Amino acid sequence: MSAAVADAFDFAAWSRAHLQATEDALSQWVGVDAPAGLGEAMRYAVLDGGKRLRPLLVYAASEAVVAAAPAMCREAAVRAACAVELIHAYSLVHDDLPCMDNDVLRRGKPTVHVQFGEAPALLAGDALQAFAFELLTPEGPAVLPTVQAELCRLLARAAGSAGMAGGQAIDLASVGRALTETELRQMHRLKTGALLEGSVMMGAACAQAPAAAREALSRYGAALGLAFQVVDDILDVTADSATLGKTAGKDAACDKPTYVSLMGLDRARAHALELHAQALDALAQPALADTRALRALADLVVQRSH
């Protein structure tokens, strides 16, 4: 791709369009007809907040393989984007509970258990997790059954014991312990990186990507997922709560191992840049048709301030 074509890419316009598609779909689908106030708690947890990085990765990865995605790929991508955001939202609801991180601020507003109570928050998280998989399995011909099955497998693995939940278990067991860099990397590869890499691979599945493209996108997603956590650890000690939209300094206060506590601030920043370079290098693959959005998202992850 020529520099002139690359320079013509309007990432702001691209992200606005995809974010609007995601918000419209989430607003239309989430919590509808849920009884006894459950829908209100579900919608509070998901709508009107968050960077929506994971949905954007789904779209960008699918378009990297199919530059002009056919209708079936677009339908699968919208559903996959919403599903991965629902899993992310449910995890935040549960992470914020008193039995976990006991946090009171998320996305600049009171956490779900503060707003609705602990039991309703727990149920809202459960319902969001279940609904994610319902979205991936629509009736009719909108999404091929083979694509539905692969999307469910990818999301379940990214969210379960081999991914996010497993990483969270390691995190809880590591409070007050000095981890090696290898141990810390493994914890964050599961806790944070698995769902980010899973988002990328779900986009590849929507586009029915060939093996070479999937391998490149997997390497991109793995590097990006780890970079995200390194930057998160940096921001926890350099940004304030108002900027972050959540409580700053929680990791240090809870004596949790982080890249900053292990490496120091300067080395952690350098490591984030190394991972950014690895992510971009993975995209230099002829099987990928258009990587501009993926490159812009990598920049966003490393340069973000919240």
Rank of each mutant, 00 (worst) to 15 (best):
V30I: 15
E134S: 10
V84R: 04
K250F: 09
E183L: 05
D290I: 06
F228T: 08
F11A: 14
A156L: 14
A252L: 15
A159Y: 10
S2P: 07
S62F: 01
A289K: 03
Q285E: 15
M201N: 06
G166T: 08
R52P: 07
P210Y: 00
K51A: 11
R267N: 14
A211H: 11
Y59F: 15
T182C: 11
G163S: 13
L196F: 09
P145Y: 09
M1W: 06
L196Q: 00
Q115E: 13
M164S: 11
M187V: 08
S199K: 06
Q28H: 15
L190A: 14
A248R: 06
R54C: 06
G108C: 09
Q303L: 12
G225L: 01
G245F: 09
V93A: 04
S15L: 13
L136K: 04
V143Y: 01
A45L: 07
M187P: 12
Q28K: 13
F131I: 02
A132Q: 03
A6P: 02
P138G: 02
L136R: 02
A293F: 06
V143Q: 11
A165H: 09
L297V: 00
Y259M: 10
R107A: 12
L172E: 12
R54Y: 00
Y90D: 02
M202A: 12
G203T: 03
T146G: 06
D240T: 12
E75A: 14
V112P: 01
S27I: 07
S199P: 04
T243L: 13
A60S: 10
D255H: 15
D33H: 13
P141A: 10
S261I: 04
K246F: 04
V104G: 03
G140M: 00
G221C: 05
T247F: 01
M187Y: 12
D255I: 10
V237T: 13
D103E: 12
A287E: 05
H94Y: 02
D236W: 06
S15E: 14
L122Q: 11
D251W: 11
M42V: 11
R214D: 01
M164Q: 13
A127S: 13
A272V: 05
A205Y: 05
A178I: 09
A289S: 13
A149F: 07
V112Q: 01
L47N: 09
